[in-house]
């Protein structure tokens, strides 16, 4: 199990550490910005081109999977407690811009929103769109505050 927060040093150790600057910066700077999601892993060509880094590439990929990123934002929805009231769907500002009808109380029907009520309980379908993610990194907690049953937990 990896740490919830990505550690730049941990990433740096897995990078080629050659400072080739094909990405425009040193490996340490790249690791730091990768941890902040400001650059993408594909911006490091040697890692992909050189077969000797294959295992390291796989490890880094594992570290930065969306699942891990989801944990990093600290939004958890316990669907055993959820009653499907849709409060989270309506309050979420991202939902309002993705599907404007949700702001006026309608149920989310598209696949573009952060929350959607499916089969009687709310699901997080696009966590990467949450404003807590980079680049916004806002300390938004409206869904947690709007939940009747404390099914949404943010830490």
């Amino acid at each position: 199990m990896v740490d919830k927060k990505l550690n730049p040093m941990q990433l740096y150790k897995l990078l080629p550490q050659t400072n080739c600057k094909q990405c425009g910066m040193t490996c340490m700077a790249f690791a730091t910005r990768l941890a902040l999601r400001e650059v993408e892993l594909k911006d490091c060509p040697p890692l992909h081109e050189n077969p000797q880094y294959a295992t390291q590439l796989a490890t880094i990929n594992e570290l930065i999977t969306p699942l891990l990123a989801a944990e990093e934002t600290g939004v958890k929805l316990d669907d055993t407690m959820c009653t499907g009231c849709g409060n989270c769907v309506v309050v979420c500002p991202v939902d309002a811009s993705a599907e404007p009808d949700t702001a006026s109380g309608k149920a989310a029907r598209s696949t573009d929103t952060v929350f959607r009520v499916e089969n009687g309980t709310a699901k997080i379908i696009n966590l990467e769109k949450c404003r807590r993610f980079p680049p916004d990194r806002m300390n938004c907690r409206v869904c947690e505050q709007g939940c009747y049953v404390k099914a949404i937990e943010i830490w």
Binding site: R116, V117, G120, T121
Partner: peptide, 11 residues
């Protein structure tokens, strides 16, 4: 049943 938007009661 598959549903979209229905609350727990409705589902």
């Amino acid at each position: 049943i598959q549903s979209l938007g229905l609350c727990a009661l409705g589902h």
